[in-house]
Design a protein around this nucleic acid. Structure first.
Ligand SMILES: [Mn+2]
Ligand SMILES: [Mn+2]
Ligand SMILES: [Zn+2]
Ligand SMILES: [Zn+2]
Lengths: 169, 169
DNA sequence: TAACAAGTGCTAATCATTTGCAACTAAGTT
DNA sequence: AACTTAGTTGCAAATGATTAGCACTTGTTA
């Protein structure tokens, strides 16, 4: 799973009857040069490109990003309400996300045991694994300081949940 | 975290200035009586209720289900493209999901180590955990028989990804 | 270089979810 | 038990992300 170059991307596309276009190459480059830990929505990607003067229509962005996700080049993430985010799929840097439900701030973390557990589970059921994403919804310190959440029930506590779970078995 | 009754639900709602309505009680009942492993979208819930003659407007369903998710009564899941699913949140039966990208068939599985890993990670960053959901995207045996996926790159392999990851550290 | 299917950029749909608003009703208060 | 007030509902209209239709353009292959 080496990083894609224009050539390997072309080969990969052509082998399935698809084509390497300047747009697809550009989009790949954006993701390849995106600092680790960053994620882009279709709209954000559109803006990034506009600022560079390399305008690609929003339709094409949606189409490309979806295609590249299905190809395994990008990972499609549900980090925020209402729209998807994408990042380069680097199996060597497989990671997961913690997201604050209040401000949507996202922190990545690595944890190989999660992929291992997933693989074990998938094998048990005769499935083939494509990806696994652990999304940890959290409240960040800032949100806590702001008095959030007022909406969680008074008896709600993640640590309580986990200790009950541990106790019962 | 005992299961909600009409009374405890009312207490929980009232303590935050909200009200117990017949609609909310009905919706809770539907989820409490839903067989384990089932999940409902807003629209599916609407249909289920219609069939029973207990019509609740789709708006109210969306509003209720979102509120109950924020309260920790329901879990909001991303199991299919384009719409959310909900299930009763039972911390004692905390579990994760494997979803086939082809047919969206969903299989639940328990794995306590995942919650433990999440909790550890969250503590490390000073965050408060609300929930953690591991979504394993897979291809089911039926889909494999059907020749899917034709879209994954030829060098794509989850096991390769995991072995590379393991090798590198 | 020709042939043609795939891809792009418009614009116009879709479709899940949200919102505005008037009527209704829980919950707390006399 | 009636009164008050703010939360809730149901309807219809709006929103907003994503998709589809289509004429035009362009990679790819022979
Ligand atoms: Mn990431
Ligand atoms: Mn479930
Ligand atoms: Zn936050
Ligand atoms: Zn399947």
């Amino acid at each position: 799973m080496l990083p894609y170059t224009a050539n390997t991307l072309k080969a990969e596309l052509n082998s399935r009857g698809w084509r390497l276009t300047p747009q697809r190459e550009t989009i790949l480059h954006v993701f390849q040069n995106l600092p680790h830990g960053n994620h882009l929505s279709a709209d954000e990607l559109h803006h990034v490109l506009s600022q560079r003067g390399e305008t690609i229509s929003l339709s094409t962005i949606y189409r490309s990003v979806k295609l590249m996700a299905r190809m395994g080049i990008l990972r499609e993430l549900e980090l925020a309400e209402g729209h998807k985010h994408y990042e380069l799929n680097r199996p060597q840097h497989h990671h997961h996300h913690m997201v604050c439900v209040q401000c949507n701030k996202t922190v990545e973390f690595k944890n190989d045991s999660i992929l291992k557990q997933s693989l074990k589970q998938v094998d048990r059921d005769g499935l083939q694994l494509i990806d696994c994403q652990l999304t940890v919804t959290t409240i960040c310190p800032e949100a806590i300081r702001m008095g959030w959440p007022s909406e969680l029930p008074s008896n709600w506590s993640c640590t309580r949940a986990i200790s009950e779970t541990a106790a019962e078995e």
